[in-house]
Amino acid sequence: MKQYTVTQSQLINPDTLLLTVRPKHAKDQLLFYPGQYAAIGFKRFGRPSPMRCFSIVSSPNKAQELQFTARIQGNFTCSLAELEPGDDVFVRGPFGNFVIDEQYDRNVILMAGGIGITPYMSMIRFATETQLPIPITLLYSYHRQEEIPFFEELRYHEQHNPNFRALFFVTKGTAAAPKGSKVLQGRIDEARLRQLTGGHFGRFTYFLCGPKGFVESMRRMVTTNGADPSRVVSEEFTPTSPANAIAAAPQHTIPRWTYALTGASLVLAAGFFMALDVDRALERAALAAPASSTTQQTPGSSTAGTSQTPTSTDSTASNSTPVPTDTQPPMMYQQPMTSVS
């Protein structure tokens, strides 16, 4: 577990958080490949949160800081969004094999849907910084142009990396392409892909990232047109994605013998109290037997008979008499009355 400190927390569009963290010590620096992800956790009211996985957005060349992007849509990400500069976070990782192999992948098409852009940002930043000699084309589908995360930055990379180009597809609202960029109305479709690849689908390595439906439809589109399935690499952003594969990590390492002793003591204690209960119940049954010679009273029946049962289902009960309540003893029925709240 590596210890980091939040240096910046900002919303890059209404529901997307960009969290920047810095390692507390040099030994905490994470070494990763662009495209990998890591698990993040934090302390809330002194207790460790579960750990959730998020793609690393920053470039591995900038080891002094890590950036994660998360869509804010649940308790965890809402809490994550509340972190402020100076707060501690814990990082585990890196994980995943969603990475470009420079020897194998000689011509790359990155296809992103929604927040699926995040692992690509690390790849694209890294490619610009190192002037990676691999042609990379990004096809990015998003609802509205004005909400596209990293839009300006992606345009910057287009201008500073001759091997990189980006095409944006907006499915809602109006597409308006600023000078030097391509923003198209509609979804990523076969015709557009055929145009890009020159019909030679098999010459490219495809990276697919986004919602499950998006990934599946893109996979179908490229493989049915001749792409080599081994060159179609995908990462889905779904509840069953690797993000959930890592459970909450304990903050401290506890030796196994501690667990063993704790377990044994629990078993012994449970056995002791069960024996005590049986003993008491038998004693009570023996005392009750002479008083009810014709009926057999089972242990505990006297209490079971009164608990949570209306003591009176008196049909004549008016609103001023005690009414059955679900708690013992019955309380006096209170009349509805409105008063200053």
């Binding site: 949570q308 209306p310 009414v323 059955p324 679900d326 029925y333 209170q334």
Partner: peptide
């Protein structure tokens, strides 16, 4: 049957009352 429960919450008294043919449980 008419059942009622009193509870303290929201800085005030909460009173819940239901009428049903079902039992107390």
């Amino acid at each position: 049957n008419c059942y009622q429960r009193e509870h303290k919450a929201l800085g005030s008294t909460v009173l819940l009352t239901i009428v049903t043919t079902e039992n107390a449980a």
